[in-house]
Design a binder for these strands. Sequence first.
DNA 1: CATGAATGAGAATTCATTCAT
DNA 2: TATGAATGAATTCTCATTCAT
Lengths: 207, 207, 207, 207
Amino acid sequence: MAYRRSRLMEERLADNRERIVRAARHLVARGGFREAQIAAVATEAGLSTGSIYRYFPSKAELFVELLGKAAEHEIDILRSIADGEGTPSARLFAAVESFTRRALDGRYLAYAFIAEPVDPEVDEARIRHRRAIAEVLKSIVRAGIESGEFPDQNLDASAACLVGAFTEALIGPTAPSAEAVSDRERLVEQICTFCFRAIAGRDKASS
Amino acid sequence: MAYRRSRLMEERLADNRERIVRAARHLVARGGFREAQIAAVATEAGLSTGSIYRYFPSKAELFVELLGKAAEHEIDILRSIADGEGTPSARLFAAVESFTRRALDGRYLAYAFIAEPVDPEVDEARIRHRRAIAEVLKSIVRAGIESGEFPDQNLDASAACLVGAFTEALIGPTAPSAEAVSDRERLVEQICTFCFRAIAGRDKASS
Amino acid sequence: MAYRRSRLMEERLADNRERIVRAARHLVARGGFREAQIAAVATEAGLSTGSIYRYFPSKAELFVELLGKAAEHEIDILRSIADGEGTPSARLFAAVESFTRRALDGRYLAYAFIAEPVDPEVDEARIRHRRAIAEVLKSIVRAGIESGEFPDQNLDASAACLVGAFTEALIGPTAPSAEAVSDRERLVEQICTFCFRAIAGRDKASS
Amino acid sequence: MAYRRSRLMEERLADNRERIVRAARHLVARGGFREAQIAAVATEAGLSTGSIYRYFPSKAELFVELLGKAAEHEIDILRSIADGEGTPSARLFAAVESFTRRALDGRYLAYAFIAEPVDPEVDEARIRHRRAIAEVLKSIVRAGIESGEFPDQNLDASAACLVGAFTEALIGPTAPSAEAVSDRERLVEQICTFCFRAIAGRDKASS
DNA sequence: CATGAATGAGAATTCATTCAT
DNA sequence: TATGAATGAATTCTCATTCAT
């Protein structure tokens, strides 16, 4: 008589996978990729090192997935904003706001895209996803230039600068720490204001 | 037995020190901190691994010095621009231009400030210097707000965004690669244009 | 509470045991002991890893049994030939022919006796059985010398050489591959011819 | 002033390499490839594990070299016998005698060719060398058939059987232990006698 | 009883640092 | 003083075995 995997079991398995990724994310956020050794991830996830390898074929794959998951979600949202309703101005603002606000809810996310992982394979994934984010922003800027809302400008340079600006402001070493800012909302607003002005060449009419 | 170092000797020692730092810089630029192992640095410098330790007590100290040297020079120049003649607008533009142009002449410099080193001690130095650069920019922006040239804005956020913007545009993964840009001058100009517009809220009158 | 295993149950148990051994044999034949991990054996047998341990206390015991089963059968047949009718010449020929032909029908069998298992306990079993085979051959050679059919020779050396000769020719790295030989029968014949000549000092009169 | 590596130093380096191979050989001879872990080799060689990697890029390469060294020497000698003076009979006898005598002087040598290494890359080397030995023997047998000294026979089968015969008799599990044989010379002689008779179909006229 | 997820003791490999020559 | 061989701690990954469900 075949043994039937209980629903509980299935949930635990899915849970573990998720737990491992989460543990890895926490460690990266806390101490960079450097601190995210397999043993540490295992401990943080409440598992043994061997178990990590039941869920991921290698350390690199784990981190590639970590970055992929984070990026996928992010890019989906950004793209729906970019392709959505509203003027390019509004969309640009919304895109930056959306990204920064979610990043502040879980800083590690953005961190993973800045910190350089030791493994080249993982780094390659990081770079790829970072580029994908820039591409989405580019499409918004392009639309704004065509509509005449934004001054003419080099798309590649603007997109790169934008990505640099908000990731750094969020969690880079020069970032105004969240505590130094009276509240998250204000930090989000400051970053949005900067980015909008950088592209539009004017301050957004205060809402 | 008293031993007097000859001037020649002293020069050779200083030379070697300099050679080591330069070798380390090249390696970091080429392959990130990951590739900058002591043995590789030694080979690149034309010395033995043991000799590295005659000049630097540890790998970490070598890289702390590397970052310090690079930052010191940079900050001196930026500060002299910040404290110098001209309108804040002109100084802002000059500061960004100066930094980016020199960075393009030796990309590794900027690279060392973005790439996260494995060693926490070294990372701490990187962060410190990066903050110092932001401080200088802040002083320019502050002056511009006071003079009425720049719209009111949060200094910390603006400085952080600026630093993020130009380091990313220079060497980050989303950077328009130097080859993709017809020439260095154009890339410098694009970055300057972005940064100026981001702070000033208008495009610089084309010179 | 007394529990009586039904005959059906018993059969299933015996079945599983047999299935496991067969699975292990296939894996050894395909990729050597190296490939015969418990998980792989379980999959091949259509059981779970845990189940393997219901039938065998350890991996080593499983492989000891595997070798034992293979050897037992082999040796029974060889012994019945050795102790049977016919001249020593005929019996020697028959013994080698019988062994090689069956080995070709399931090469893995012979393989298990050549390939060195990682586990010392298993290796010890392999050696024991290999020696048993040599012993049977020795008895035939002894009879042949006594009857004057075979020239005088050292029994131990001859038996060892014989075992080495046919196992190597069957599946050793220098073995003429079965495909390279027009058909199995020819390979069997070649090996028999060699072995007979080696012991008898003359070619068998072609039948 | 450049530092000059002393002759002593150079010797030590060469020594170490040799020491490592020798240590590996001893371990293989004693307990098979299984016992020859890097840590064990290092200890046996009187070095640290790290040092092994100064001399060999990987464990596999070390063992490939080990086998290569052993085989090269062996095959050179066999080939010079095969291509040398004398009747095929004499050359066959000399070849087997030469191989077996040297193998008895350092059993591990032959052992390395029988024991199956865990690493497929290493195993591939073992097989290659073993085949090379068979090839040399084949050339002698071929000459003997042509000269009419040996009866017609399948070359591939005979060579494979020969290699199997003497490696097994030397160090295989069924081998008459060296101690059980009154002296080495007698064992060598027994093996030669067997092999000659197997190929020639007659006993060598006692010298 | 069957299952297969979890465990954790190894084993290979890397690289900063030391120290005899 | 310069050298670079030697060291060994640290890290990734494997797989036999156990045990909760």
